[in-house]
Design a protein around this nucleic acid. Structure first.
Lengths: 220, 220
DNA sequence: TCGTATAGGAGCAGT
DNA sequence: ACTGCTCTTATACGA
């Protein structure tokens, strides 16, 4: 890992064309050849190049390229304040708790929170248009596609995503003659989305990861 | 801007819970108080905190918090290899060419490339469900919602995005009695998306930014 | 503030 | 490789 503190400018061409005007920046070059040019604000780098990029260095100029995708970044070093190298031998993992997948896992064992009488059919149930998070059957035997979101949902696309699953279910021989339903499970939803779901006949059940992770209290 | 090269571990709690095991990292602290913990690979930091975070430092331990969103990052410094500060006085802008907005601007003056006889109605035309990139009328006087994408489109969401616009148009008094149509303009589309568009009656016209930016050759 | 859409999105898992 | 889909997505723009 190399850290260059410098005043530089840059020019990127590839997926777009971009010009970075001169400024004080920190350039990180990682062990996998990822290159980041970080400015004084924000999470995202001003410019970057992906892992596996090729590196050509001349005095005052660095050219990083990724021919496979037609990308190229030219960095012009106007003044180098420091340029150091670090071994980075230890690489501890990052462990995340509370992902959607985990929420879905928890919910699978607590389907009674969604609706009484649901029977699990499958997880990530394959349809021609993509996998359904949780597929269940209700008391009437009709299929219920449950879409799980970890965080508050605002955008309306999810309604169409569920609709797409329902259309697919309706066309599958296994479910011929049934009336597929859809339910969105999330900790919160935008007002406009709730209206859209209502209009489409898609249910919404407010459930958070914290609720699912807390000691379960199944129905009596 | 501060750069700490160190061996550290960290614990984040907020939107999820995450634990970063001990490893060699580069911590960037930006002028806007953004904090990034970068590992040896990849574009994204292992952990981060947003601009405006609060900072508490003790020997061997840094606590960054953003109470407004209930976020907190604890960094445990096991060994500090270097810890430097840099002024960063010059902040040149980043200028991008080839964004979707610019592509849309160009296309607005070359609607003949999409379909003969289109008449411009509006840009970013407001509907209750969001703005339509380009709204036009065709030779029959029916509204045409044109969605512009600057890069190849794979996901099917765009079909629903356009469908939503069409539904909204159908419900607007201005367009009562008309038959709204949708057209996706992009340099390329996935096979499955093409099928979905076809099925939904949404048109696809293959146009790239490069084509629009090249010297225009209007119809004879 | 919320809602909506773009991003050089990135990253990941399945086919 | 292509597709689908989540992300502590970030970021910008507008009502």
């Amino acid at each position: 890992m190399r850290v260059i503190v410098c005043r530089c400018s840059a020019r990127y061409t590839g997926r777009i064309d971009a010009e970075l005007e001169p400024g004080d920046r920190i350039i990180l070059v990682k062990q996998d050849a990822t290159v980041l040019i970080h400015g004084a604000s924000g999470l995202m780098p001003k410019n970057w190049m992906p892992a596996g990029s090729e590196w050509i260095e001349e005095p005052g100029r660095i050219v990083v390229s990724y021919p496979r995708r037609g990308e190229r970044l030219e960095i012009y070093l106007h003044e180098v304040f420091s340029d150091t190298h670090h071994a980075a031998e230890l690489h501890g993992r990052l462990i995340k708790l509370g992902s959607e997948r985990e929420m879905s896992d928890l919910l699978a064992g607590q389907l009674w929170r969604v609706e009484e009488g649901l029977e699990m059919v499958g997880r990530e149930a394959q349809t021609p248009v993509g996998p359904i998070d949780i597929l269940a059957t209700d008391q009437a035997g009709d299929p219920v596609a449950i879409e799980v979101k970890r965080a508050r949902v605002a955008g309306g696309e999810v309604a169409y995503q569920v609709q797409r699953y329902l259309d697919a279910l309706a066309g599958m021989p296994d479910w011929a003659g049934t009336r597929p339903r859809g339910i969105l499970v999330a900790p919160a939803a935008a007002r406009t989305l709730l209206a859209l779901l209502e209009q489409r006949g898609i249910g919404f059940v407010r459930i958070s990861y914290e609720l699912l992770a807390s000691p379960a209290t199944p129905p009596s």
